[in-house]
Design a binder for these strands. Structure first.
Lengths: 183, 183
DNA sequence: GCAAATTAATGATTTATTCAAG
DNA sequence: CTTGAATAAATCATTAATTTGC
């Protein structure tokens, strides 16, 4: 393979490490002098130009923000926008029983800091764009205000209820072997 | 001991199949509702709790990414780095102390120079730009009078419209299987 | 052929980061 | 400036494979 015309700069792990460290240290929009220094430093590990550094910080900052926006700040916009035209329709209810599947999930698990349960909520922030269709927002229960063992539902269910291609294929499932539950 | 306290969950092949299929469909960080559904579904094939589902996606995602990073990320650096892969220079070297007259190419960028002198910016607090308006603060070298530093932004013709290409791993599909049979 | 020891997978915890709000 | 929320990365710990010796 011929030397790629290197249309783009490809930071080496070392360079990336340095940049990330700087970013984490608070550097976000380095000025000319800083960029010069950074570039000089990074040059020890590979080719790099000032513009690369500049762009890196710009992109990194923007991307971080975008990510966070998706994760936490989305409802913000949603609240302002009219709900989905045909929003409330949790089609994925093939077998979700009316009863809460969750009950004693996070009770005796956490021995020290049971904050672990808090992590359950989570949103659907996929920073990576896989094949596209994916997330399935289904909030049939509609409330979870009951006695939730874990307090995950911090995110509102205002998400666009999108049908999901969730694994329905296993509905029939087979009786394959495997005796897992041995334990 | 007849009863092994089975301290941890062992997914059955069916469960694993479902989970993998979901992952392939794009599910990566299911929220509470999704976890409920998934758990309910998986429960038909064996014991499982919400936390198991949560952990599974976390681990799976992390490991897929790690794998790709290890595999692809490495050669990337190699291709561009023929010099010394491991230089004795510690990467953890932030920027140099405030010793210089900043005003090099930038005219009036930001007040970061001040922060830098003190402690590298005050973390988060200044890049609170409104969504969307992500203009670059630093417009370097508006004038071509002095080439003290790089001058990339002078001409927009060579602007890399793409990010630096860091951390762009799209994990889709998965091959490693956890022994889906046997036993 | 089986069982103990070793290695590899992977489930479960902890830690460190990020940005946003108060 | 401090706190809140939510991961993702790093790490720990346990189960399952695999290897090795008899």
């Amino acid at each position: 393979m011929p030397q790629t015309p290197s249309t783009r700069w490809c930071p080496t792990p070392e360079q990336l490490m340095i940049l990330e460290e700087m970013y984490r240290s608070g550097v976000r929009t380095p000025n000319a002098s800083q960029i010069q220094q950074i570039t000089a430093h990074l040059s020890l590990y590979g080719k790099v130009e000032g513009k690369n550094v500049f762009y890196w910080f710009q992109n990194h900052k923007a991307r971080e923000r975008q990510k966070l926006r998706r994760r936490l700040g989305w409802q913000h916009q949603m609240l302002h926008q009219s709900e989905g035209p045909s929003s409330p329709t949790p089609p994925l209810h093939h077998q979700t029983p009316p009863t809460f599947p969750y009950q004693g999930c996070f009770h005796e698990v956490s021995s020290q800091g049971m904050n672990l349960a808090g992590k359950l909520d989570a949103s659907q922030g996929q920073e990576e764009e896989p094949t596209g269709s994916n997330v399935m927002y289904a909030q049939p229960c509609g409330s979870t205000d009951g006695p939730p063992c874990w307090r995950p539902l911090r995110t509102l269910d205002l998400f666009p209820t999108k049908s999901t291609g969730m694994g329905d294929e296993c509905s029939s499932s087979k009786s394959s072997s495997c005796s897992t539950s041995t334990n």
